[in-house]
Design a protein around this nucleic acid. Structure first.
Length: 463
RNA sequence: GCUCCCUUCGUCUAGUGGCCUAGGACGCCGCCCUCUCACGGCGUAAACAGGGGUUCGAGUCCCCUAGGGAGCGCCA
């Protein structure tokens, strides 16, 4: 039987990092076994669902290259089908109309809480005929009252819950629209899901979904509940502590490869391997190797991975991802060296594309101000080396880092200065700061005329 | 409150009864490299939540306690 997994977000906000990891695991599992990965939008909550969220979700998935084989299916388009199944359950006496008011339900809940018992619907309408059939009603599923539901969770192991813990859940609201636990069951059945991989927050829903599925004559799929992701402080993920929309990671300058690699190692491992390409994820992913415990986010590790990918991925590809960040800073790469050469020297000095873009500024834009540390280099005692280097650079006929390096070494020797003492003032002059890639490479990339102009500009400033 | 789930270095994890003197990675600290910053290399510190069992032997199995999380909606 072909493996079929799905990702079923509700479009009520951004696509958050926990959802992405769930999607990644589902995707990887399907690919691993040559199956299909289905995208389904659970938009039955009219109040909170919106089209913008749908776009955010699709955009996030595409950015991460989590391609789906079928869908996106929208639950709102399947209303007729849900109504049909609800009628079927009603006809088979597996569901019933419940006329209890929200007030009564509320009172019931409060009383049960007071008695320190788990709040549940008491089943009043399950047996009683309605006094007034014209009143609004919801439809409830007749959950079995005896026995227990046992299932083998692919990551959590055996889970068993007594039916006495469950109540008759509402499958249709008083306006006739179906509810989540019901639509999920119908969809997973109709879409022939073989593996339901989802967040651990759904564990408690699973037994009632299994009961529903069986009432419809289907055997449940394999369930795999992946642990939650916690924020840096080990607390529940919230909008406050970063980690909101995945697209925010894009905006912050993270490559999709890094985000995917980071996420796949959160709760899953393959021996001691840390770096995984998409292909390797597909090759090695095993749901049975997913951890049971929740994991906290570690931004340092994400940064490390991002740097790794900026360093190792094709520079032309990195350049493309870098472009928006350069534009953000009004940096035009036509005003300077080949951007891939700049990436080659700055990737290992940056954690994000945003940072890389900021550092590349001196290769494309004029120096308009100097950092405090740079100013300390641009002082009277450094006029001599600065001027000496400038003169020699002027007469250089081959502008390459080797010859540039030779010039600086020569000046240092002649002035009996350490190399660093000569390099730092130059660095300050040509970059406006005291930190940059090696001075010879930096000069080469900035270019002969521009470098000389900048040294002159700096000299004028000193004198 | 009730039900369910979880618990190895700061963090992500390896570990499936003897291979564990508990391994790797990020981070931290130190050393080397070095014109700055990095990268890279080498190295140090750093964990089995606690208590009972089972067993010749427990990080690994069972129980209890503690701590954490989730669910208990006419939300998904």
């Amino acid at each position: 039987m072909q493996v079929r997994t799905r990702f079923a977000p509700s479009p009520t906000g951004y696509l958050h990092i926990g959802g992405v990891r769930t999607a990644l695991f589902s995707w990887a599992y399907a690919k691993r076994y040559g199956g299909k990965f289905i995208l389904r939008i659970e938009d039955t909550d009219l109040e909170r669902s919106n089209a913008e969220s749908v776009q955010t979700i699709l955009g996030g998935m595409k950015w991460l290259n989590l391609d789906w084989d079928e869908g996106p299916f929208y639950q709102m388009e399947r209303m007729e089908r849900y109504k049909q199944v609800i009628q079927q359950l009603l006809d088979e006496d597996k569901a019933y109309k419940c006329y209890c008011s929200k007030d009564r339900l509320q009172d019931l809940r409060e009383k049960q809480m007071e008695q320190k018992i788990k709040p549940k619907y008491d089943g009043l309408c399950r047996t009683k005929d309605p006094k007034d059939p014209n009143r609004p009603y919801v439809i409830r599923f007749k959950n079995p009252q005896e026995g227990e539901v046992v299932f083998q969770d692919a990551v959590q192991g055996e889970i068993r819950i007594k039916n006495s813990e469950l109540d008759d859940l509402i499958i249709a609201r008083s306006d006739g629209t179906p509810t989540y636990n019901f639509t999920v069951v119908v969809d997973d059945m109709d879409m022939r899901m073989t593996h339901v991989i989802r967040g651990a927050d759904h564990i408690n829903n699973t037994p009632r979904q299994i009961n529903l599925l069986r009432a419809l004559g289907y055997e449940p799929p394999v369930y795999a509940h992946v642990p939650m992701i916690l924020d840096v402080d080990g607390r529940k993920l919230s909008k406050r502590h970063g980690a909101a929309s995945v697209l925010e990671y894009k905006d912050e300058g993270y490559l999709p490869e890094a985000v995917i690699n980071y996420l796949v190692r959160l709760g899953w491992s393959h021996g001691d391997q840390e770096i995984f390409s998409m292909d390797e994820i597909v090759e090695y992913f095993e749901i049975s190797r997913v951890n049971r415990a929740a994991a906290s986010l570690n931004p340092d590790k994400l940064n490390w991975l991002n740097q790794h990918y900026m360093k190792t991925l094709d520079p032309y590809y990195v350049a493309e991802a870098l472009l928006p960040h350069l534009e953000e800073l009004a940096i035009d790469v036509k005003n300077g060296p080949d951007i891939t050469k700049v990436i080659a020297v700055l990737a290992e000095r940056s954690h994000t594309l945003k940072e890389l873009a900021e550092k590349s500024s001196c290769f494309y834009k004029d120096i308009t101000e100097y950092s405090d540390k740079a100013k300390k280099q641009l002082v009277a005692k450094n006029v001599e080396p600065l001027a000496a280097v400038k003169e020699r650079l002027k007469s250089l006929t081959n502008w390459e880092k080797e010859s540039i390096h030779a010039v600086i070494v020569q000046v240092a020797e002649e002035l009996d200065m350490k190399l660093g003492k000569v390099a730092q003032p130059i660095r300050a002059a040509i970059t406006g700061d005291v930190v940059s890639p090696p001075i010879d490479i930096t000069l080469e990339l900035i270019g002969q005329k521009r470098s000389i102009d900048r040294i002159e500009q700096a000299l004028l400033k000193v004198m």
